[in-house]
Simulated assay, not measured.
Amino acid sequence: MLSKIRGFGKFSGQLLKSVAQAYENGQIEVGYDPAIGTFTIRFVSTLGLPPNLADLKAAVGEVLPAHLLVKYVFRYLLVREVEGLKLQNLELRKLSDFAPFLEEKGK
């Protein structure tokens, strides 16, 4: 409901950020590439997929004009962030904090 209240008015990147921030407790960044008409919502402090991603996408879809696109960029733990961790600390991490493994086709 908070996103609906924030969602009124002329569309802008700031409006998109405000709506997205209503669904995300962490830090996000919103960028725009006018050459391809695409906004990017980047999750900066949340690891993995946000638990309410479907709700966020629905709210963004309600305020985003039809001629624009939106892309979501998620944050996962990087090798440089885990290489110094002790095994017991690493085992405390959720598997979803790591980038999903995608098998290559044909292998």
Rank of each mutant, 00 (worst) to 15 (best):
S45D: 15
V73D: 15
E81A: 08
F43K: 03
V30Y: 07
N52Y: 11
E24Y: 07
V82Q: 02
F43W: 13
L16V: 09
E81M: 08
G26M: 09
E24A: 07
E24H: 09
K71G: 06
F11D: 03
L85N: 05
K4S: 13
E81S: 07
P100G: 01
S18V: 01
D97V: 03
V60K: 06
L47M: 14
L2F: 11
H67S: 05
K10T: 08
V70C: 10
A35F: 06
T40M: 00
D55F: 12
G26Y: 07
I41F: 12
I41M: 08
G106P: 11
F8G: 02
N89L: 07
E83L: 10
H67P: 01
P65H: 04
R93H: 12
P51T: 07
P100D: 03
V63Y: 05
K71H: 15
R42V: 03
S18D: 15
Q14N: 13
G9P: 06
I36R: 06
F101E: 10
S12H: 02
G13A: 08
V73K: 15
G26Q: 12
L92H: 10
Y32P: 00
A58M: 09
R6C: 00
S45V: 09
D97Q: 13
S45C: 12
N89K: 10
E62W: 10
S3I: 04
L15P: 01
N89T: 07
P34N: 03
G31T: 15
N89S: 13
K107Q: 13
L78I: 04
L64G: 04
L92N: 08
A66N: 06
T40I: 04
F74H: 14
E29K: 12
A99V: 03
N25Q: 15
P100Q: 02
H67V: 03
Q88C: 13
Y23S: 05
K105I: 14
E83I: 09
Q14M: 10
E91L: 14
A22P: 05
T40E: 05
T40H: 01
G31W: 10
S12N: 03
G61N: 12
G37E: 09
L56W: 01
A66W: 02
V82P: 00
A66F: 10
L77K: 13
L95S: 09
R6Y: 06
T38H: 00
I5F: 10
G37D: 04
N89E: 15
N89V: 01
R80L: 11
A99Y: 04
F43E: 02
F43A: 11
L77G: 02
F39H: 11
V82M: 05
P65R: 08
L68K: 10
S18I: 01
T38E: 14
A99Q: 10
V79Y: 10
S3L: 02
F11C: 04
G84W: 07
Y23H: 15
D55N: 12
S45G: 14
G31Q: 13
A58P: 01
H67D: 11
L69V: 00
L2S: 12
G106R: 12
P50I: 09
K107F: 11
K4P: 01
N52V: 05
Y23I: 01
I28T: 05
I28W: 03
G7Y: 02
T38G: 00
V19L: 06
L53F: 12
V19M: 09
M1H: 08
E83V: 11
L95Y: 00
F43D: 01
K4E: 13
N89M: 07
P65C: 07
Y32Q: 00
L69A: 09
I41E: 11
Q14D: 13
E62Q: 15
A59P: 01
L68P: 01
A66I: 04
P100R: 04
